[in-house]
Every structure is written in structure tokens, then in C-alpha cells.
Simulated assay, not measured.
Amino acid sequence: MRRRKLLTGALAAGATAIVGAGTASAATPSGDPAAGLEEALFRPPAAQPVPLTLLTAQTAAARRAFRAAHYTDLGQALPGLLATAAATRNAATGRARQQASGALARAYVLTAELASKQHSDAAWVAADRALLAARESGTPVPVGEASRVLAITMRRSGRWSSAVHLLTREAAELDAAEERTAAVRTTLLLTAAYSAATGGDRSAALALLDEAEEDVERLPEVPGLFTVEATRAQVDIYRIGALNALGIPDMGVKVAAGLNVNHMPTEERRARAWTDIGRMWHALGDGTQTFAALRQVELEAPQEVRRPALRALTSDLLYGPARVQGLREFAVRTGALAA
């Protein structure tokens, strides 16, 4: 009980292109998938409204690109998707407008996720607009998803306490008895736990993790939330990340040993799992294990390992005391070291 209180701009062809996108574009390590997002937010391309079924299909295709870590293709598709979703919402009324607002909110969620991964300030604008559109949808699940990306943006700017406050407040308003809202609530608790950990609040971080763990043990797993699942594996990954942030990575070794990353459903989530495991080993001074985790990230999602945070980890390992076979070639290949 105590823990409870802690609390046509984008054409159909474009959507099809996202679904069929491969990883060939990952061969350009210096490319920034989020480069066009700022202009897309402030000077969107012209677009016409489309039927809700088509808008839903386009949003789903963009989500698949994110979950597959095809970030270059996602970055190319998002400007048109945002413009089309906004035009569709603006032209609709009543229930159709609410549904279009939900799709627009999720397009902004993807924009904020991609911008955050690339350390772009566009994440702030996208996350704020996501929450506004989500509230207009009148549906709690998009509101929770948008609150999560806004809190991530807050945390990245150093406002971890505000992030925790937003997340726990939104979590408290979600119905814990309904499966999908309960699952979203769990993801908010996990993000709040990691946010608290980045601020050094150990008691809050661990209590929020424990509450999220209680939730996933009490409720059936709900796959298919928009960008992250509410599962035991996700709880374990967030626990490893929080322990890293709190400066006690040794406590995460046992958690990592019991985690089967291969059972996680998407490339993006598996890559994130290996990232946190790599950070754990790096903090413990094990260069070989760190590099092994980085290689797993690359195998799962070649574009993920080229993100700024992963290139920084690679560079830090490269210039550290350990000499790891194959690391220099990996650093060149992923853009952490000039050829």
C-alpha cells in the first residue's frame, strides 16, 4: 500500500515502404535519422486528410519500423505521417476526430522516441504535442504513452523529479483493473523508477520497480503496447538500468543472468536490453563482456548501435585500459571512430 502512494502527405505507398524497409541504410554511420524532424514539426509538408483506416495503417507501419529499429526509414516517413494525421484530425468531427487525434498522438510519440534516441531537442516539441493530441482523443492508453515520452524528455534534460511526478500522477489515474490500461500503468512505473534512479533516489526507484513487478505478476502479460511491453522481462531490464544509474551495477548481474533476451518480442527492445547489460559490464570494468553486449546490439539492430549513446560507450571502451580484440574495427564500422 505504501508503494501505491508513490505514485495526402504520407501515401499508402509510403506506409508499405516502411513495412518492407531493410537495414541497408544502416551502412551510413554518420547519418542522423532524426535530422528532418525539427523542420517537420515547425514547417510540415502539405497534406490532405485520408480515411481513418488508411491513417491507422500508416501509423501501424511506422510503429513496425520503430520496433524493428529501422530508424532511417522511420525518420523519412514521419514528416508525411505527422502532416497527414494532423490534416485528418483537423478535417474530422466527433468520434472520428477523437480517433484521428489518437493516431496523431502516436505519430508524435514515435517522433519523440526517435528524437530522444538521437539526442535531438525536437523530442520536447514532439512529446508535448503527443500529450495534447492524446488528451483530445479521450482515451487513457494514448495519454499514458504520451506521458511516458514527455517524462523521458524531462529526465534527459535533468528534470528527473518532475518526470517522476508526472509519471506517478498519470499512473494513479489509470484503471489498474483493465488489462491494457494496467499495462500502460506498469510502463509508467518502470520509466518513473529509472527516472528516480538517474536522480539518485534509491528508495523511490526500488519501490517503483517492486510495484511494477507486483503488477506483472498479478496481471496477464499484455503484448503489443505501442513502443514497450509490460512484461517481467521489461521489469528486469529496467531494474538493470536503474541499478546502473544508482551506481550499484553489481546487483544487476544476477538479474541479467536470469534474463533470456531472445524471448523479447522486438529488435528495438532486445537491443535496449543488451545496451543496459553492456553498460552494467562496463561499469564493472569488464571490457570483454561489454564488447560482447555491444556486438549483440549490432546483431539485433545495426542502426541502434550507431546512436550517439552507443557510440559514446564504444569510444569509452576503446580508450579504456582494456584491449579487446575486434573493438577497433567495430568502432570504425559503427561510427565511433573515424576510418
Rank of each mutant, 00 (worst) to 15 (best):
L174R: 15
A183I: 11
P265E: 12
L310Q: 13
L317M: 04
A292H: 12
Q48E: 12
A245V: 02
A12T: 04
L206R: 10
G22Y: 02
G20F: 12
A256Y: 00
A127M: 06
V235K: 08
V164H: 02
G285H: 01
P142T: 03
A177Y: 04
T153I: 05
A77D: 01
E145N: 05
D201S: 12
D121R: 03
T16W: 06
V297W: 00
A107P: 03
V332D: 06
T8V: 07
G36W: 13
L246E: 09
T93A: 14
A47F: 09
T266Q: 15
G326K: 03
A331M: 04
Y319F: 13
S203V: 14
G241L: 02
T275I: 07
A322Q: 08
L225G: 11
A24G: 07
G158K: 11
A336W: 14
W124T: 14
L225Q: 07
A83M: 10
K117M: 15
H119I: 00
A21F: 07
A283L: 11
A87M: 14
R269E: 15
G200F: 01
Q303E: 14
P51R: 11
E170R: 05
A105K: 13
S162P: 07
E214N: 11
T275H: 15
E173R: 15
R95H: 05
D276G: 10
Q76T: 14
R97P: 06
G20N: 10
T186N: 11
L206S: 04
G199C: 03
G287P: 04
S120Y: 09
P220M: 10
L225V: 12
L78E: 02
M1Q: 02
A115P: 15
E213A: 11
P302V: 07
G102A: 15
Q296C: 12
G20R: 12
T8A: 12
A182T: 10
E39K: 12
A301Y: 03
T186G: 07
Q58K: 12
A86P: 12
L318R: 10
A130M: 00
S147C: 06
A92L: 04
L188C: 14
A86K: 11
E221S: 11
L54R: 09
Q289K: 08
E213I: 08
T186P: 09
G80L: 09
R328L: 01
G335D: 06
V297Q: 02
Q98F: 07
A322W: 08
S195A: 03
A68P: 00
T93R: 09
T72M: 13
Y194I: 14
A12L: 02
R97A: 10
E39I: 08
S25K: 03
A10F: 06
K254Y: 08
A57Y: 06
R180P: 00
G320E: 01
A177P: 00
R202H: 14
D316P: 13
G36L: 15
L294E: 06
A257I: 02
P321D: 08
L174M: 09
I240T: 07
A96V: 05
V125I: 15
W124M: 08
V255H: 01
V228L: 09
A10G: 05
Y319P: 00
T181P: 00
A309P: 09
T139P: 01
A322C: 13
V255C: 01
M251D: 06
N262H: 10
R269M: 08
A257C: 03
T139C: 07
D215L: 10
A57T: 05
A205E: 05
R306K: 00
V305W: 12
V143C: 04
V332Y: 10
W160A: 13
V149Q: 14
A126C: 01
